[in-house]
Amino acid sequence: MTDARTSRRTLLAATTALIGLSGTASARTVHGLPWTSNEVYPPAEARPGPWLFFTADEAAAVEAIVDRLIPADELGPGGKDAGCAVFIDRQLAGPYGRCEGMYMQGPFPPNPLPTQGFQSSVAFASAYRQGLAALAAHVGRSFGGRKVQQLSGEELDRLLTSMEKRETNTPEFNASGLFDLIHNNTMEGFFADPIYGGNRDMAGWKLLGFPGTRYDYRDVIARPNRRYELPPVSLLGRPDWNRGGRG
């Protein structure tokens, strides 16, 4: 590996630039085909360890929620064991949490049309921080001073249902917005490549029967309507291929 390539990779890894490359790359004139093989940077692997964005209380609440959205049952692990909270934490600590690459200039009129999509000035990381604080306050008031993570599964299901159905919304607490955000990110985490910290042991892919990143299915196309038996593969390979058991 040349120094130039190392420095490009290092720079990009340091900025964890999933999107927003235009700020770091520079203008250049191109003659010929200036490629360096495998120049594309791989995503930084989300590793287990301390929370990067969540406080301990926030993380405990989110872990409790993702485990109700995707409960552990006879079909496989739940959201918590699959790493969905870790996935969300790593995403919020990175460019996604800051809404990098999105158009975030004002003004932000209070009543956008339902057809106009996301129109908030609050980036996703801040939306979690504010939303989880409002949820904690709501739960404290409604459940005798307890925390989200102290609710029973049944209580939490009822709370999440009321949030989803917009029954918990108040001027101070956009509960349905918080629900949609967590629900969306939980599903992303459960089904994204394990390299991002969720879908641990490819639990989400095994639930579906999705074979992952094999990239060549000419054998499958040659024999339609046959059940596929090979186990999934991720960008990290398979756990049994790696000494450290990652993936």
């Binding site: 490629w35 994204a192 991002y196 990239y215």
Partner: peptide, 13 residues
């Protein structure tokens, strides 16, 4: 060769 690599391309997220 530089940007669409089998080791990174199949990444839905």
């Amino acid at each position: 060769a530089s940007d669409f690599n089998i080791g990174t391309a199949p990444d839905e997220l």
